[in-house]
Write a protein that binds this DNA or RNA. Structure first.
Lengths: 160, 160
DNA sequence: TAAAACTGTACCAATTTAGTTCTATTTATC
DNA sequence: GATAAATAGAACTAAATTGGTACAGTTTTA
């Protein structure tokens, strides 16, 4: 399967959970672990990574916690995924890093691997966190077009 | 990283290699291994899987070999990937199989995982094997739009 | 000052994956 | 009909990745 790690899956759950609350509210790792039914150490680990990648803000000490650094409709799924899994690289040949592959000098499809990579990345860059917490609207919209429409063009047409 | 297995990567290389030849020509596993600089047993293994999934035809015995079962422009990258990696399932929650997840009865984002899954799947369903062996044209297209647009929805009014 | 929460590092176990090996079957050619 | 070349299929091993945990440290509020 083309797949995301479990931790990334959890990360999406955690981000979605936070996205359902007002943006200003803080969430402790403990609360999120309970709400999402995930082990606390794992939740902490994930939140740390999301923080380091600029998707969350944090406040230390008692009464501390994590919060979204932007509103959910401004956070793309691609950002969350690449925060937790590193830069998009469906295959080893799809990055700009050289020297990782023996075939490199004569590899016939290196450029094309990049194309595949980019297709996926761009499709996820247009799907926003806010889309994950509104299943109804998106489902309805897909019915119309049999295709997911980039959030940027979704938002204007959407009921607020 | 959101990633494909190495074997899938090799599979794309092998399919591309065959796509460069006339469709009627047969390719032995040995020849392909040499051409693509991959170990023969691995190549055999991959070709077998591609055969079982209906993407290749085979002829046994001396003078046997494998060939594409359709022309490259009718074979999508999504088909090749799911042949080698199983059905698309970016996360465990994105399939229709139930009972794999303890959170299932109350999982807040199961439907949304499906959405992510579908976005990726559809973007790859519109990218064809023929696109991988024509870097120039696709590159030019990307230059215009700074975006890969699925061939089918290119026509429908997504632009401007 | 104590408690609650984040921060960072390091480690282990389980799973998955890549790669190999061996045997059986089919088929064209001599 | 024998042989060589090729696919078909099953099983196994070793390595890499990943998930999960543990623990010590730092910050902040009450």
């Amino acid at each position: 399967m083309i797949r995301l790690g479990k931790l990334t899956d959890y990360g999406l759950v955690l981000m979605s959970q936070m996205a359902r609350q007002p943006q200003s509210s803080l969430h402790t790792a403990r609360d999120l672990a309970v709400q999402c039914k995930l082990p606390l150490p794992t939740v902490s680990k994930i939140l740390k990574v999301l923080l380091q990648n600029g998707l969350l803000s944090s406040h230390r000490g008692i009464k501390g916690g994590y919060g979204l650094v932007r509103e959910p409709r401004m956070i793309s799924i691609a950002e969350i995924i690449s925060a937790l899994e590193g830069p998009f690289a469906l295959t080893e040949c799809s990055t700009d890093v050289t020297g990782m592959c023996d075939l490199e000098p004569c590899c016939p499809i290196k450029d094309n691997q990049r194309i595949i990579n980019r297709v996926v990345q761009e499709s996820l860059r247009d799907l926003m966190l806010s889309d994950l917490i509104r299943p109804m609207q998106l489902a309805a919209m897909r019915g119309q077009k049999n295709n997911i429409v980039p959030a940027s063009s979704l938002i204007s047409g959407r009921v607020q």
